[in-house]
């Protein structure tokens, strides 16, 4: 499924949600996933994510009867390769195959989405989890800007690399 189809499936949920609270749940989900599963400490920053700097990422849709949202991470090529090397235990000088990077970023999103789903259920917003979709290059990433609302935050590793956490939903939804 393309990102376009993923967004179109979201519909226009009449049941509002609080995007700011949901975004903080999203950030917490990624920080916890990176810490527990990948032993990587990321911290929330006050910096605004730069969409133009993103070169790769992954997204996943979470839906219910009233609509839903897309959870996504975006990062630059260096961070994407660094995360992939970590997950696949690759050497620093080893090439990172695109297939491995897609798998690694998708799995990070998949695990974090499970945490996010549990947090949203606690907040009274039960959601069904979709399948992760790898985002490559500028076109698919810039599509996020069109026809949707997007709130995002930046989490940063002590080594300087960072991950953008995005929460995307259709116009007219959310508080």
């Amino acid at each position: 499924m393309t990102l376009t189809a993923q967004i179109e499936k979201l519909g226009n949920p009449p049941c509002p949600f609080d995007p700011k609270a949901a975004l903080m749940d999203a950030v917490s989900s990624f920080v916890e996933t990176c810490d527990v599963q990948f032993e990587q400490t990321y911290e929330l920053t006050e910096e605004m994510p730069d969409l133009d700097a993103a070169r790769c990422g992954s997204s996943i849709s979470l839906t219910n009867d009233q609509g839903g949202m897309i959870l996504a991470i975006l990062c630059d090529q260096e961070t994407g390769e660094s995360l992939t090397r970590l997950l696949f235990a690759l050497e620093e000088d080893e090439d990172v195959p695109l297939e491995d990077m897609a798998d690694a970023l998708n799995e990070i999103v998949n695990v974090a989405a499970g945490v996010f789903k549990a947090l949203r259920a606690e907040a009274g917003q039960p959601l069904n989890l979709g399948l992760p979709l790898y985002l490559e290059g500028g076109n698919s990433i810039k599509f996020i800007r069109s026809g949707t609302k997007d709130q995002s935050r930046l989490i940063r590793h002590p080594d300087g690399t960072s991950i953008q956490v995005h929460l995307i939903w259709q116009e007219g939804t959310g508080k």
Partner: peptide, 25 residues
């Protein structure tokens, strides 16, 4: 698995699974 709802835990138990470990672990 990345999801561990009560419904899934019940389904797993009914099917005879010995445990369900939620990601991240």
């Amino acid at each position: 698995t990345s999801e561990s709802t009560m419904e899934m835990r019940n389904l797993a138990a009914e099917a005879g699974a010995d445990f369900l470990l939620a990601k991240p672990f």
